[in-house]
Design a protein around this nucleic acid. Structure first.
Lengths: 149, 149
DNA sequence: TACAAATAATTAGTGTGACAAATATATGAA
DNA sequence: TTCATATATTTGTCACACTAATTATTTGTA
């Protein structure tokens, strides 16, 4: 294994991740979903884990705070999410899905699950397990921290 | 395999790709490399394949034309790359590394190869082959076109 | 109590990614 | 030759990623 190969794998990883995101975004657009892939990720996590602060949510979706602030701004303009002042801590907000946000998640979830399947055709369970293991190994190599599940 | 799992793998892929890029960019910054990871990719390809048009280069690095135009603008401001008018086709440019660009590539290449190694610790040749195969399968699933190599 | 340090969120600035539209030039067919 | 079409590149717009700095508030400690 030459050093050159490592650069090529990094390139391949980046290229593939972009393609997966781009494909999903195109399908979102075709379906007039009115949210981006990243906005969906945020709404999905709010839906599954209930109201939480931006810091907690940022940790869940692995986005930095400025990025999350802007995604929340956009979702809030669209009326899917609202910032409710935290009762004890005035620096902080609790993020809630609005009724409209809840309906949106319910409407989109099955369609998005289908879109997400396409990338994984022609691969089997062993491939998925290996892939997950390798991705997690890479992440850990660079993170210097443990990761869970 | 539930549909939910596919969404998780997509998330993991995106997260890992971002981490790899982020780690590299941090190291670039620590070393005062004066280029970004993507700018380096462009310079490296120019260095290895000689002068070429923006369209050719965009194909090599899998970036779209507007993105490449802007990266070339930045590299050109930094004096590492120049656009030379194509002798036969006035719509087109030949991209050249300047002398300064050539030196830059020579100086950075070994350091960057080392940085790139870190992600792949604790993995063996079989892992690399599997990883590459799976990434390429995913890409093909979504691209609708054949890929080479 | 008072004040330094920590925390939650935002703002600002730069770079990249995707998509659409515009500009300039080249090519091929009538 | 002329005109429609194709090609190379750029411009514009929006969204996301990362860093650094800022604001507001809370917490820990003297």
């Amino acid at each position: 294994m030459t050093q050159e190969q490592f650069a090529k794998y990094s390139f391949l990883l980046d290229r593939t991740a972009r393609k997966v995101k781009q494909y999903a975004q195109q399908q979102f657009k075709l379906g007039d979903f009115d949210v981006t892939v990243d906005q969906w990720l945020v709404m999905k996590n709010l839906s599954e884990n209930g109201p939480m602060s931006q810091t907690e949510l940022a940790g869940l979706v692995f986005k930095d705070h400025p990025t999350l602030t802007r995604i929340i701004d956009l979702l809030s303009k669209k009326g899917y999410v609202e910032r409710v002042p935290h009762p004890q801590d005035r620096r902080s907000f609790q993020l809630h899905l609005t009724d409209s946000g809840v309906s949106k998640v319910a409407a989109l979830r099955p369609q998005i699950l289908e879109i997400r399947e396409k990338a994984w055709e022609n691969l089997n369970q062993t491939d998925f397990d290996e892939f997950k293991r390798i991705l997690n190994t890479i992440y850990q190599n660079l993170d210097g921290q443990e990761i869970e599940e």
